[in-house]
Amino acid sequence: MKTKVLTVDDSRTIRNMLLVTLNNAGFDTVQAEDGIEGLEVLEESNPDVIVTDINMPRLDGFGFIEGVRQNDLYRSVPILVLTTESDDEKKNRARQAGATGWIVKPFDPTKLVSAIERVTA
C-alpha cells in the first residue's frame, strides 16, 4: 500500500504541483482546497501524512491543524506545513497548533519528498 498524503492548499497551482510531485514519487494523494474541506476529507481519506498551506480562506492552516489534532484518530498523524523561508513566526504558530514539521516554499520536489519520508515510517 502506498503512503497516502492529504494536501491542503487553496492555490490550484500548488495543488497541482504537489499532485504531480507526489504521484511521481509514488505516493497516493488526496486534495483539499482549504481547512474546512481538509477536515471533511480527513476521515474518509485516512491519510498517513498531511501537507498543508497556512494562508487559506474559510479555515487557515493553524485552525486546520488544531482540528486534526482534536480528532482522536489523527492526534499523531504527521502534519507538514508549507511555509516561506522567512516566516519563523508562522512556523512557530504552526508548531504550537501541532504541526510536525515544515516544508519551505517554493518547494524543491526532492526536499518535499524527503521531508515526507522523514516523518513517515
Partner: peptide
C-alpha cells in the same frame, strides 16, 4: 509525540 514526531524515525 503530540505533534506527530516519532523518536524511532
Amino acid at each position: 509525540y503530540a505533534k506527530g514526531n516519532d523518536t524511532a524515525l
